[in-house]
Design a binder for these strands. Structure first.
Lengths: 218, 218
DNA sequence: ACGGTAACAGACAGATCGGTCTATCTGTCC
DNA sequence: GGACAGATAGACCGATCTGTCTGTTACCGT
């Protein structure tokens, strides 16, 4: 599961104008999506690139091209927007991984590699700031916080995916090895952030593959 | 190099009152150190536990028991205080490592292990928030920022220390292996932060040791 | 045509931010 | 004793923050 850069997903491109006869109000360059979605798009872009605490509500609504009130009717508070942003990012990351894995057939090692590949391509985008979930945990360190819950869920899901692949590989110790692969993944993203290079992720991928392959064939 | 929790160094304990006939003014419980040092102590404690952006100037000066003006005469700005805090932490981390390594004789593997041990004991303290340098980089992501410079210096020094130990071990590829050990170190601290447990660091230490030992005997 | 809903723009409130400034106090040195 | 340096408390400033509220506009279903 990639935990990184700005989504390349359904963010900016309204590929065919106001999509048929959908709601087509607003003056300039009709946005084609509702305020809630545009707010999440703006939040993702800004929070990913500059950090959550560093970006104020005003920046978000200006970027989204949305009224202040819309943010509060749809989300209620900045904190709630932050949670929604993280949850959507988690869903999108999962979708991206599934898309990348599709057509791989039965290749558990390839599934593990795909997670690193997605992170690596995210790291190559400019403005990369590392794993957004760990970053969120850094900015909102309160243990009981909803942010912590989203982060924990993301990480559990990621580790389970690693573990499943290892089980399918017939690895003798899938639990410990999944933990190690996640550790290496975390380190790769951290190093990549600090050094502004995708190299640590490449290194992490190689390391992870070695861990997965070691004594894998029974 | 431990990159972690609140210093156990010369923070709070004035072990012998106002130390002889030194400057002993102030009303309650004479502080025994100057405002600059007390500010750095307070900054370290608060920034480490709650994050830099989350802690305002007022909290820092209140915790330090120091006048607002003192902060600005000694440091000039909050940003400068942040840099000073990071630089002092870096110095102290290095001192702690040297202290831990002293008496180890010629044990390069032990020196590597010591870095992980220090991180591990930091992670066991409550309020642990992970690597403070990576956290600072997260909170101040501007590439040219002085924060980035301090973080880069810290990481370079750490990697060099790993490399030196590996060279002494006769490792065939000290550069790549040092990078890998740092990667594993980063991952351990990240996981430790996210999961609020020292276990990832323990796992990282084992992994690092295996990396250092592999094909080490020529 | 009309009423309802949802989004709009923007003023406003209260808190907090980093930073400046004045005025007072205290200990030190001459 | 008196000038001086450094620290103190705390008022003050403008900017910015999250969040609320008012009033207007535009679309949509009936």
């Amino acid at each position: 599961m990639p935990s990184s850069g700005p989504s390349s997903g359904p963010s900016s491109g309204p590929s065919s104008g106001p999509s048929a006869d959908s709601p087509s109000r607003r003056s300039p360059a009709a946005p084609a999506t509702g305020p809630a979605e545009r707010l999440l798009d703006a939040a993702a872009r800004l929070f990913d690139r500059e950090g959550i605490r560093a970006v104020g509500i005003d920046r978000v609504i200006a970027t989204a091209g949305v009224a202040r009130a819309s943010l509060y009717t749809h989300f209620g508070s900045k904190d709630a927007l932050v949670i929604a942003y993280l949850e959507r990012a988690d869903r999108e990351d999962l979708q991206r991984l599934r898309r990348a894995v599709r057509g791989l057939g039965d290749d558990p090692l390839g599934r593990i590699r795909a997670a690193f590949d997605l992170a690596s391509s995210a790291a190559r985008r400019r403005g990369y700031r590392g794993c957004r979930y760990l970053n969120a945990a850094t900015e909102f360190p309160e243990p009981g916080s909803p942010v912590a819950a989203v982060v924990a869920e993301h990480r559990t899901r990621q580790r389970t995916a690693f573990r499943d692949a290892l089980v399918q590989l017939g690895h003798p110790d899938p639990d410990e090895t999944a933990a190690r692969i996640q550790l290496v993944y975390d380190g790769g993203l951290a190093g990549s952030k600090a050094e502004r290079s995708a190299e640590p992720i490449t290194r992490a991928a190689a390391l992870a593959e070695a861990l997965a392959a070691a004594t894998a064939g029974r």
